[in-house]
Design a protein around this nucleic acid. Sequence first.
DNA 1: ACTGACCTAATTTACGTTCAGTAGGTTGGT
DNA 2: ACCAACCTACTGAACGTAAATTAGGTCAGT
Lengths: 202, 202
Amino acid sequence: MPDQRPYAALLAKGEDRRQRILTATQRLVTRHGWRGITLGQIAREAGVSPAGLLHHFESKEQLLHAALDARDTYDDTQVDRSADIVDQLQRVANRFREAPELVGMFGVLLMENLDPAAPLHDRLTGRYRAARESVAEKIREGQRAGIYRTDLDPAVKAVEIVAFITGMETAWLLDPSIPLAEVFREYTGSLVRELSLPHDRR
Amino acid sequence: MPDQRPYAALLAKGEDRRQRILTATQRLVTRHGWRGITLGQIAREAGVSPAGLLHHFESKEQLLHAALDARDTYDDTQVDRSADIVDQLQRVANRFREAPELVGMFGVLLMENLDPAAPLHDRLTGRYRAARESVAEKIREGQRAGIYRTDLDPAVKAVEIVAFITGMETAWLLDPSIPLAEVFREYTGSLVRELSLPHDRR
DNA sequence: ACTGACCTAATTTACGTTCAGTAGGTTGGT
DNA sequence: ACCAACCTACTGAACGTAAATTAGGTCAGT
């Protein structure tokens, strides 16, 4: 299993260390936020010295971007353009359990970068908007297909849905013992009833 | 208008400065988070030197608590035990416009204090839980009064509702131009339909 | 004399980053 | 077969700076 050539083993070791630094970063950022942690803490958790960490990443900020890149990549692999809203929401719920740090990191960083001048503001808000737009588009599709009511604004409902998701993320980060599955099931259920049924209202 | 007695005017000036420091703190914390700002920034915004600020508040942490106290007080005055869920949700929506910094500060600090060992963790999560419990209790009341369905778990629905609220807070901090009123109206509408109507389902 | 509201100028600490060096492995030329 | 130049993966110590806090002083009013 270990490569016979020592140089390859060396490279593998480096790559492994790099990976450890990234996951340590994700874990710590999720718990304490970016400004709440130091290179020293990350380094310790990854088993290196602060200087050793900077051998792999040129700066604290660049490390953050690398950690976010990993999250975005994971996130993109999870997206299924063909799935409907119910499936997509279910998928979101699953991600909480599967990759807690990756899910958590986004929300934490978002709140840390609310200011338009904040270093990650554009990157994060871009993702946020994209998610909302994608949900709105799903609703429009349903409307065009004739299975959803057409008397409600997809953009408005999309804001609600994304707010629910991010709010659940917060709730779960605060207390992982909440009945995640039930809440998602309940919400998606009422959402579908709301979207589908033709109602009589003034 | 200014008191004829200069000493009273002096005290009033101090109180005014104290107030300015608090509102500056709330504003800056909402935008940049607690760890994202310095005493110097707050002081500058309030028109004092850092040392001058510490004449009014003994430490950065104590200032934070004082700012939170102001928020909690405001929040408590807004709560109306007799109002039903729809009214309460409407009230929440109004608060966004009325006191943006007070509303925003809570969510930002919450994400900055996820860790159980974080200085404000207990204080903030306590408030969060209380809000959720209060919502759940409202639902139970409705159930006992016979106006709400009894086949759903108030605790589960309460998690959803509070998640929606905090999620909306995030969305609005990110982009205040979202159709806040419409989203709240839409959501409360579907919520009431969901809670009230007896449905046929297996 | 004493208090409240400040100020300027230290002091202290923490943290990101840089620097110089070590240990081991590889490569290409002779 | 050997050596010089270069690579990766680090470490320990030092540097620079930013930021919270403190010390000591000023000035106006009572």
